[in-house]
Every structure is written in C-alpha cells, then in structure tokens.
Amino acid sequence: MAEPLLSIRDLHTHFDTKAGIVKAVNGVSFDVAPGEILGLVGESGSGKSITGFSILGLIQQPGRIVGGSIRFAGEELVGAETTRLRQLRGRDIAMIFQDPMMTLNPVLRIDTQIVEAILAHENVGRAVALGRARDALAKVGIPSPEERLKAYPHQFSGGMRQRVAIAIALLHRPRLIICDEPTTALDVTIQAQIIHEMRLLCQEQGTALIWITHDLAVVDSLADRLCVMYAGRIVEQGPAGAVIAEPAHPYTRGLIDSIPSRNSRGARLKQIPGMAPSPLALPAGCPFRPRCSYADDACLNEPSSIGVGAGRDARCVHPLVARVPA
C-alpha cells in the first residue's frame, strides 16, 4: 500500500466513570489510504463512534485518549495542540454526524453557517464566500440553492439537512471525511441518493472516507475495506468483498447470518446468543467468548491479531478461514 493518509496504532480511549474505567476503544489499529472508503462496522457500544471522535480530538471529559498514536499525513494528532486540531478540523478532516440537526445551528440561516465555515479557514470576502456557499449547495443536489441559502435548518427535510451537512463537510475539499451513521435516520430512497452522491463527490475530489455504521449491507455496497469492531477492539479487517463472502471471525459470521435476506425467508435466523458484554465487566480473554460457539480454553487468553489472507487479519484463536502468515 502507498503511504497511508491516516494511520492509527494501538489507540486506547477510556472513560472514567463512577462505576469504573470504560475502555471504549481498547487497542485499535488501522490505516486509511488516500481516496479509500473504509467501513467501520459494529453494534451499539462497540466503540466505533468513539474511534471516529478520537481522530478529530473530540473526546471530552470524562473521556481521554490514554495511549496509542493517530498519524494523519505523517503528523501525530494524539497530544497535538488544540489550535492545530482546530486548523485541521473542517479543512483537512471533516465529520458528518447521524443527526444533521445536531451539526446545524437551529437559529442561524444556512448561508450564515456555511459562510462561517468558509471564513474559519480561508481569508476571502463575504461575497466570494456566499458564492461558494451557493455552489456547495448546488453540488450536493439541493434545488434552487440561491433561495435555500436563506432558509433555516427546520425548513429542510431530513434528507436535505443531511445534504447541507455534507456540503459543509466538502467545503474545503478535505482529504478525509468521517461519516458517523450518516444515512441511518433516512429513508431507503434518500439513503440511496446520499450514498450515490457521496461516492461521486469523493471520487471527484479524491477524498478518503471512514463510514461508521451498524449496517453491514450498506458498507458492502460502498466500502473498499472493512473493520469489524466488538467491545472496543477490531476483531476483523480486510477487503470488504472478501470479509463479507468469507468472514474469518465468528462474530462477523454471526452478524452476517443475523441479517434477514432473500435466502432466509421462513427459516429461523441464525442468531448470536446473548448480548454484548458490559464494557465495565469484559470477560477475560476474547470478549466474544461467552457468545461464541467455537470458544474453548484457548480463548481464555486474549487472542492476538493473525493474518488470514491478502490484507486480512482477525483476532481469533479459531479463525473460520485458513491462517496465512502476513
């Protein structure tokens, strides 16, 4: 692989709570190449969103990054100055959230918000900025952008609001966009429109994407590579097609089997028994052990990452595909 745009090594993000330390992100490592679409998949509480927030330095008290390294274009972001992070945020790395109502200020017009975002990083006149704002809205497919600039967020539908959020994220042609469940709140027809346009826009600008989602079907139709997270760890990663077709980790297998599909009609779904463990009381060894049908005594020791094919690895003692030394 060429020089990665983003390189995360052994990232640990912990939250100090009254009940104990929650290890939300517990030793995560992955790379994102320039222009690559990486799907970060996991269920609620797996740490996928916290990983995204950690990259942008958006972890707030009582959370903190306790260890590891996040290198963006060769620059270390863990422990970087707040002023430096502010320069990067929005210009080089942008983020799109699940609920665009959260990103947009409800009492400011759209033009005010977009112009503010432009002026935060560039020294241009207000008229120029307004023109760029209009172009940005037009690019994400908002009809009559000139008029819509004067509207408030509540006057947009959910899909349109998400387009505004995407327009703002794309303003400075960032090299990396982190999308946290950007289409989860949207209807299928609108989801298809957004995915379609995001992919075109990113291809055009060579932007890399980290697409955080719980929906394997969405990343399967979108991502180049896939990271599956469970209890704060990446349990499997590799090229999306290979991982979906032939998962190596029993958890990934279980997730895929849990999705109702054309072939499962009328039959019982193969369910994963039990539920995700509390992050305060993770079982010793492999965190998936209590729900795994392959688990034995060997799983009592924390499994390390092993190679299971070209560009693939899994954290499992009993991988479902043959081991290939990396």
Partner: peptide, 15 residues
C-alpha cells in the same frame, strides 16, 4: 435501492 449484503459494491440509481 435496498442495500443487500453479498451483492458487493454497486452503483445506486436513486429515484
């Protein structure tokens, strides 16, 4: 437009 698992990467032709 429903994303389906196992279909692999594809382009959507959204309505």
């Amino acid at each position: 437009e429903v994303p389906r698992i196992g279909a692999g990467k594809r382009t959507f032709a959204p309505v």
